[in-house]
Write a protein that binds this DNA or RNA. Structure first.
Length: 642
RNA sequence: GCCAAUGUAGCUCAGUGGUAGAGUACUUCCUUGGUAAGGAAGAAGUCAUGGGUUCAAUUCCCAUCAUUGGCUCCA
């Protein structure tokens, strides 16, 4: 019997029934047959040596495809489990999936503790097992048999996984001495795993639930070639150098103090300049777009947050209230929105004034969990570039689109290219996590989706990621080591106006409820700057650089003229530093370069005599001498690109 | 909050059961130099904190705090 196989390029080929993808690859070229790791048959991932029984569309995947890598790493996870059981025969296995970079396996070591010292031994064992070229063999098994099998092995986590599987759809994969519950597919045999690196150990709750047992998660990565592992490790090293905590320290942007408290950043002069420049930039953009700046205090009565619903939701996880001698309770503000609601409330509003856009660089304080704090990306005190737009229901979509434009404008100016837009919706399975009527939720969610669509924004959608009062459009950006952080956010809210009984008088002379849009293009200045540091590796664009220009003297003889140059630059609003130390020019240049200063002006005998400056530009080197006013003009042109 | 690792000079990091060392930064002196590190001297540490073991602890053990990598959480 013959079957027709349609390949990715739409060519059709006739093969005998029970042909495998490996044979199909062989029919194309030997080289492809060597490289193929996994395939898909009618869009279902398929072992390459598993027979195909009927007409199908087949795609072949190699290491160059995400599917190939995932399968390779998934198989590697099985290999790691096999090696681990060799050293820890009593360990119980959780799950072992591939991830973006490598894979992990969750293991319950029981009373034993896992020792990192064993990494090398496990890697060695894995390599030894890999070289045996053990075949990954697939076996269909009934649920009853599967339960018997794993009961005998006392694999309690596997038994729990089995509970949620349907009889008839259960498969086991075996390689060497190891058999795992697994739907597959896998690479043909372990022999293609040539390079192995165990990366780190972490605790992870079983099934991601805090109330469950915590298992030990081992992260690792493997490659089909040793060279690729070397490259990967080099990339990791490079990424570490971009870490905003390292650069922040080296460039003297910010610091932390145990005495001040964990998660409370202290902005050093250079960091503060950077912050101010970003604030100035966004303020200008917002003022041009009809925002009105407001200022609200850092504390407010607890009642405010009871009204808003934040207290019920987050009260327990907040900094505890401050008590006055008269038993009043004040909270450090965790959010600006309730304050802005009160500003809206301060006078009667007409439909004619809407939308009202209240903006504030508002510093908020949240009692984040100890283990969550991370450099500037997760802190306990931070400044949001917050604004709340109060508008009529018929204005929602237009306003939402304007906010998207603003976020994209900012990302564009700061050259954030690799962001993803995520629509965060409520999870209908967990209504207790949200406030408000379902009808409002659906309306809000539809509005966000529509606005994003009309802006041709490519989005992913996630259930259960919404704020408790409304759905969000989040802009996610990755840091140097590939972690994804929420930056800009736009949130649609029908609930707070309800809670605060906000109204406006409509055309019909009756009271109506406005809709609120919460939005923060940066998200928080702290996190934004952290990511900006990592994306630029500290090489900020000229208009943001804390020190755009440094004046370097060749010897102390020229300090006087250099000082004059510096003063002249400052008069032109160009923040120039002066390095008049008794050091050689080479050293001064090196240090200025390490500080990533965009322009160095070198002042020696020639410049002093000719009243010029010798310009050295970052990345370009010596660009020659010129008169100061000419340099100033050039610099200003570069500044005012923005 | 949970699991694990780490904590030595301002910074980066060696090291040791007999109370510490390098590079760099800092101070002073010499040098006055032309595009990524000139030379010399000096000062600098309660070895995170608190207990315990020991004749003796920075080193071993326990606890606490902080940091790091994850998990959970993230208005």
């Amino acid at each position: 019997m013959q079957i027709t196989i349609t390949l990715a390029d739409q060519t059709k080929k006739i093969f005998p029934k029970d042909i495998t993808c490996l044979s199909i690859a062989q029919s194309i070229s030997d080289k492809l047959a060597q490289k193929i790791l996994v395939a898909s048959v009618n869009d279902t991932l398929w072992d390459i040596e598993r027979p195909i029984t009927q007409d199908a569309t087949v795609k072949l995947f190699t290491w160059d495809d995400a599917e190939g890598k995932n399968t390779f790493w998934h198989s590697s996870a099985h290999l790691m489990a096999e090696a681990l059981l060799h050293f820890y025969p009593k360990a119980k296995l959780g799950i072992g999936p591939p991830i973006a970079q490598g894979f992990y396996y969750d293991i319950d070591f029981g009373k034993e503790t896992f020792d990192i010292q064993n990494f090398a031994a496990i890697e060695k064992k894995m390599l030894a097992l890999a070289s045996q070229k053990n075949i990954f063999s697939r076996k269909n098994i009934s649920k009853k048999e599967a339960i018997q099998y794993f009961e005998k092995k006392k694999e309690k986590y596997k038994l729990e996984l089995l509970k949620n599987l349907q009889d008839g759809q259960i498969t086991l994969y075996t390689q060497g001495n190891f058999t795992d519950l697994c739907k597959g597919p896998h690479i043909p045999h372990t022999g293609s795993i040539k390079a192995i690196k165990l990366l780190n150990v972490a605790g992870a709750y079983w099934q991601g639930n805090e109330k469950n047992q915590q298992l030990t998660r081992l992260y690792a990565i493997t490659f089909p070639q040793k060279k690729e592992l070397q490259n990967y490790l080099t990339v990791l090293e490079e990424a570490k150098k971009r870490d905003h905590r390292t650069i922040g320290k080296n460039l003297k942007l910010f610091t932390f103090s145990q005495k001040v408290g964990m998660g409370l950043p202290l902005w050093l002069p250079k960091g503060a300049v950077l912050r101010e420049k970003l604030i100035k930039f966004l303020t200008k953009a917002q003022n041009e777009r009809g925002y009105s700046p407001v200022v609200t205090p850092h504390i407010a009565k607890k009642d405010l947050y009871v009204t808003s619903g934040h207290d019920a939701k987050y009260g327990a996880d907040a900094f505890q209230p401050i008590k006055t001698p008269h038993d009043e309770l004040f909270m450090l503000k965790p959010m600006n929105c309730p304050h802005h609601c009160e500003i809206y409330q301060s006078e009667p509003r007409s439909y004619k004034e809407l939308p009202i856009r209240l903006s504030e660089f508002g510093t908020v304080y949240r009692y984040e969990q100890h283990g969550e704090l991370h450099g500037l990306t997760r802190v306990r005190g931070f400044t949001q570039d917050d604004a709340h737009i109060f508008c009529r229901p018929d204005q929602v979509k237009e306003e939402f689109k304007k906010v998207i434009d603003l976020v994209l404008y900012i990302f564009d100016k700061l050259k954030f290219q690799n962001f993803t837009a995520q629509i965060s919706l409520h999870d209908p399975q967990h209504p207790e996590k949200y406030i408000g009527k379902t009808a409002n939720w659906l309306q809000a969610e539809a509005a966000i989706q529509q606005a994003a669509q009309e802006k041709y924004l490519e989005t992913t959608t996630k259930l259960g990621e919404a704020a408790f009062y409304g759905p969000k459009l989040d802009f996610m950006v990755k840091d140097a080591i590939g972690r994804s952080w929420q930056m800009g956010t736009v949130q649609l809210d029908y609930q707070l106006p309800e809670k605060f009984q906000l109204t406006y008088t409509g055309k019909d002379n009756t009271k109506h409820r406005p809709v609120m849009i919460h939005r923060a293009p940066f998200g928080s200045l702290e996190r934004f700057i952290a990511i900006l540091i990592e994306h630029t590796a500290g090489n900020f664009p000229l208009w943001l650089a804390p020190t755009p220009v440094i004046v370097l003297t060749v010897s102390e003889k020229y300090n006087e003229y250099a000082q004059k140059v510096c003063t002249a630059l400052k008069k032109q609003q160009i923040d120039a530093n002066l390095d008049d130390r008794n050091e050689k020019i080479g050293k001064k240049i090196r240090e200025a370069a390490i500080q990533k200063i965009p322009y160095m002006l070198i002042i020696g005998e020639k410049e002093t005599k000719d009243h010029t400056v010798a310009v050295r530009k970052k990345g370009e080197g010596d660009v020659g001498s010129m008169e100061l006013h000419f340099f100033v003009k050039k610099l200003q042109e570069e500044f005012y690109i923005y």
